[in-house]
């Protein structure tokens, strides 16, 4: 049996919101160390990897490995009913045919409950090598989101090139071209948190990526910062780390070639 309680239902809401345009259904694999989801889009261009650590839950218990096959349209409907500061308790018995959601307001004066039918999903898992990328860029997720939104109007392919001093995001369209260059910096955002751009380059890199997917993966609500890992001719990795050791949401995106 699985039972997990998240202090904020909004955490799961944001995750589902961020992936639902890429995947329509996926297996949540649950064991005593946490919950993992790995799923590709239908065109096998992008892969979503979610890891939620049991330690990041307020309460977590899973005595037997259990796979929950979830339809994201149904899950979105359920999560829409949670207020942002509600807590969320997930429950499933070993049969894995239903998932139960309980949302509870902070004051405990409102409790809502939903039961969702699960499905059997024949998923193909890929083994993702632990790659030491040539370029690691850490930046504000709001900045990354702004760059993707701005440049998406100009073309379908984003070229990202990085050297030791800067990273350049560029796009060439039929009638116009646009680019944004970022250099390492440190600024304070409106919450008085330090938001820095750091660029670590072992080897100069130049990759072409689908603008449509990048725009989907640029999501400032998931975490304050995002990490981009790049290397020539290797799928790029876009990574969001959740606070309080809850885990990570990774997007892998296959490059475009000539």
């Amino acid at each position: 049996m699985l039972e997990g309680r998240l202090t904020h239902a909004s955490t799961l809401k944001k995750i589902v919101e961020a992936v639902k345009d890429v995947i329509s259904e996926a297996n949540f694999d649950c064991n005593d160390s946490g919950i993992t989801l790995q799923c590709m889009d239908s065109g096998h261009v992008a892969l979503v990897l979610l890891q939620l650590n049991s330690d990041g839950f307020e309460d977590y218990r899973c005595d037997r490995n259990i796979t929950l096959g979830i339809n994201f349209a149904a899950l979105t409907k359920v999560l829409k009913c949670a207020a942002n500061d509600d807590s969320l308790t997930l429950k499933a018995d070993d049969s894995g045919d239903r998932l139960n959601f309980v949302f509870e307001s902070q004051k405990g004066d409102r409790v809502s409950e939903f039961d969702m039918k699960l499905m059997t999903i024949d998923a193909e898992l890929l083994s993702i090598p632990d790659n030491d990328y040539d370029v690691t860029i850490k930046m504000s997720s709001a900045e990354f989101s702004r760059i993707c939104k701005d440049l998406a109007n100009f073309g379908e392919t984003m070229n990202i090139s990085a050297d030791k001093e800067s990273v350049r995001f560029g796009v060439e369209g039929d009638v116009s071209a646009a680019s944004v260059v970022l250099r390492p910096n440190e600024t304070i955002d409106e919450d008085e948190k330090i938001v820095s751009t750091s660029i670590m380059v072992k080897k100069e890199t130049n990759v072409n990526l689908s603008m449509k997917f990048l725009k989907t993966f640029a999501n400032s609500s998931l975490a304050g910062s995002v990490t981009l890992e790049l290397q020539d001719d290797i799928p790029c990795l876009i990574k969001y780390v959740f606070p309080n050791d809850l885990g990570v949401l990774c997007f892998y995106l296959a490059p475009k070639g000539d």
């Binding site: 890929l126 689908s210 475009k256």
Partner: peptide
């Protein structure tokens, strides 16, 4: 135009 590659050519089946 650039051609979109698929992840299958980089990651093997587990």
């Amino acid at each position: 135009a650039k051609v979109q590659n698929r992840l299958d050519s980089y990651f093997k089946k587990a």
